[in-house]
Structures are given as structure tokens and as C-alpha cells.
Design a protein around this nucleic acid. Structure first.
Lengths: 221, 221
DNA sequence: TCACGATTATACTGGCGAGTAAACAACGTC
DNA sequence: GACGTTGTTTACTCGCCAGTATAATCGTGA
């Protein structure tokens, strides 16, 4: 596992490597561990994933992983945190986009659902509270509250502009995000539908509801 | 752990214990193991649950548990199977009830959501595929397909009688059940709402949708 | 070229937990 | 009362895995 090959450099004038190149390599290696670990976590679950197996798949040994991470819990935490950061950024972008509340909510939920299909986003959906240490869990919960807060603000904005009508914003947020979180559990990349098709349909179902829109199904019947 | 107390008998005439009483006691002990094990599985997850701890909480030792179950996987399988049986029976009852498709679907989903709040039903929602052995998983998937099939038939009946309108029955079933499955992940018995209140609201949200019913939000816009 | 820090590997500890062998206790039948 | 069966305990094996001590290798700077 000697790094025999030199990375092809950008057409930079200086022939000497920048002092920060080592930091970049270190970050790249750490990222490689995370990307591989999240695959294992998503497929086997946290407890059934051994760091020996993760290391083997990266052609290194386990102590190498411990060079970049303090312990196994930190690796899981980093994966879930990354997923929540991606989700949070997408949620913020959707909140700040144009359109009424419903349109922004629709875009937000579609992005959310797509992220639940694989990678770090799926890790968010697939990681139960008890897999994380108490300290990690409290930090993760804080991040989740941030995302929830954005979703609720968008729903409230939609209620204010008349495009959304729900009885309880908090429970509605749980219900909608629950449906999309579950995609992390059943989405199959080998299945007939793409993650976007699934996302769009699931969100359309949440927005439109199951009831046929007719006088016989008026709300509150 | 000696069984010092005699169970109070029904007012039966014969003073001799029935030969089947031992079978009944055996079944009661097996049930006690399941009821306790599912609490541990729901709280800690399958892998983080040790049978030593389960046994200790029942005031017996681990080999006693192995007297009633072949292995740990069989215990988890029995818990999930029990949950799916309860869900399946409720689904069948709802399918055969009166009312149009939407009314039957509403009753079915409320029962389903309530069962997701605790016990064996929550175990169904909280058990990822990779926690089960391959053989157990294939049997569990068969049971899940049965339940899914009932939900789809009720949706199809509702589409036929005009009370339900959805674009894709299969994806709609996944989305709706996903939302309710997620209740197993966040329901808190100490929270302000009862499981019935949460169930009724979540199902109302799924049925009614997030969009306000107005001309500006017509389906397909 | 050498020293030093960073990176990685070898070998290992310690603990946990699934599962079991053998022994003991309790129960039921003859 | 003896014996067989059932239920339970004690003591244990074995394997796995998180995590680490120490050594070796590599890369960089002087």
C-alpha cells in the first residue's frame, strides 16, 4: 500500500509541492474512510460493521483508520453529521427560493427524499438513536432540530400564503419526513424507478393526499 | 426463581392439574421471554441487546432462554412475526369492514400506526433487514407482502368507488406505510399526545395531503 | 545524507457475547 | 420410593471486535 504514484498536478508554475498538499492528502484519506464506512453502515448496520473489514476494503489495516478517527462512534457521527449538513444546506436553499410555501416545500421535500436514497443521507435515515453515543446523539439531535425548524417555517409560510393547510405543523413535519426517511430503508438502486422518480411521486402523494378531491371527501368528514 | 406460587385456578371441579397445564406454563414462559426481549430490542437494537441482560431481567440465566428458543435470531424472528401477525389481522379486519375504500383505508392505517407505537409492532418498524438471518428475512418479507397486498387492495377498492385517487398504488403504499413505520422511531410514551392522537393525525395528513384545497393547488399544476 | 515527524503495519490485549456441556433441581409417573 | 423427564444453573469455550503498543516505513526539510 505504498503510495508509489504521484498525483498529477494542476498546471501550476512552482515545481515544489505546496506545504498544504499533505493536509489535502490527509483530508482525502479521511474522506475515503468515511465514504467507504458509510457504505458498510448502510448495508450491514453499525454494530455488524467491523473496522477490520472497512480497512481491508481500502487496502490498509485497522490502525490506519484509528490514525484519522478517534473511535468507531466518531466515524458514525461524522457520517450522520455529513448527511445532515447536506440535507440542511438543501433545505436552506429551498427555503430561500422563489415561489409560494407549497412550491418551496415541494422542492425541499424532493431534495430531501433524493438524499435519503443513498450515501450519507441514507445513513441519517438508517441510524437509530441507540447506535450513537450519548454525546454524539445530542449533537445529532441539535442538527436535526435545525432541519426540522426549516421545514416547519416553510410549512408555516405556506399556511400564511394560503397554499398549505395542515392542522398541526409539528406532527405534519414528523409524518412527511417519516415517509421520506423510510425511503432510506427500501430504495433499491437496481429497482425500476430512479431516486428522482420515487422522490417526486412520494412528495406528490404527501402533498396531494390519498383522498380523491371531491365533495364526498371534504376535510373533516 | 423457583415457581413457588400456584396460579389461582378457574372454578374447575377437578383437584388434579390437567396434563396440559405444563404445556400452558411452558408457553407462558416462552411468551414472557418474547415480551421482555422485544422491549430490549426496541430500546437498544438487536445487536446491542445481550441475552444475558434479558435473562437477568427475568430472574433466570441465559441457558434458560435457550431452553425455549434455538438461538437469538429465532427470538427476533418471533418478535417480528408476532408484530406482522397482529398487523395482518387488523388489516384483514379493516378490509372486511363496511364503508367505502377511503373509510376502510383510514381505519386500517390508524390501527397500523397505533401498533407501530410499541411492542411487537414497533419491533417490525425498528428491525432493519440486515438484523435478520437470510432465512428469517425471507419469511418476514413474505408476511410483509401479505400486509402490503391488503393495503393495496383497499386502495384499489377506493379508487374503484371514487373515494381514493392516487397515481401509483405501489409507491403510495410504500409512502404511507413509511410515514407510519417511522412512528416506531419517534413515538414517545411520555410525550404530550397519545398513540391514538398521533395515529389519527398522521393518517389525516396522509389522506388530506399538505396542500390547501383550492383552485390554485389543483392536482397536476 | 540524516533526523524527525507522519503514516502504516504487526502483534496483541481485553472484554463481550452467542452458544453449550454437564450438573443439579424440580416435577410427574409408575 | 425410584426413575425419567423437564427446567434451570454453573462453568465454560470460542470467536469476534474495539482499541492499542510498538515497530517499520515513508516523506520532508535542513
Amino acid at each position: 500500500m505504498r503510495t508509489g504514484s504521484t498525483a498529477k498536478r494542476s498546471p501550476d508554475v512552482s515545481p515544489w509541492p505546496k506545504p498544504e498538499q499533505r493536509e489535502i492528502n490527509r483530508a482525502l484519506k479521511r474522506e475515503a474512510v468515511l465514504l467507504r464506512a458509510v457504505e458498510f453502515f448502510n448495508e450491514k448496520g453499525f454494530h455488524a460493521t467491523s473496522l477490520d473489514d472497512v480497512a481491508l476494503s481500502l487496502n490498509v489495516t485497522k490502525p490506519t483508520i484509528y490514525h484519522y478517527f478517534a473511535n468507531k462512534d466518531e466515524i458514525l457521527f461524522a457520517c450522520v453529521q455529513r448527511g445532515l449538513e447536506e440535507i440542511g444546506q438543501a433545505a436552506q436553499a429551498a427555503e430561500q427560493a422563489g415561489g409560494n410555501g407549497l412550491q418551496r416545500l415541494r422542492a425541499l421535500l424532493i431534495d430531501y427524499a433524493m438524499m435519503m436514497s443513498d450515501g450519507f443521507g441514507a445513513c441519517v435515515g438508517r441510524t437509530p438513536d441507540h447506535a450513537l453515543s450519548a454525546e454524539s446523539l445530542s449533537r445529532i439531535k441539535a442538527l436535526k432540530r435545525d432541519t426540522d425548524a426549516i421545514v416547519r417555517r416553510v410549512i408555516e409560510a405556506g399556511m400564511a400564503d394560503g397554499s398549505i393547510a395542515v392542522a398541526d405543523v409539528r406532527l405534519t413535519t414528523f409524518t412527511a419526513l417519516g415517509a421520506l426517511n423510510w425511503i432510506s430503508r427500501w430504495y433499491d438502486p437496481a429497482g425500476p424507478l430512479s431516486k428522482r422518480e420515487i422522490a417526486e411521486h412520494s412528495v406528490a402523494t404527501l402533498i396531494g393526499g390519498l383522498a380523491a378531491r371531491s365533495d364526498s371527501n371534504r376535510r373533516g368528514e
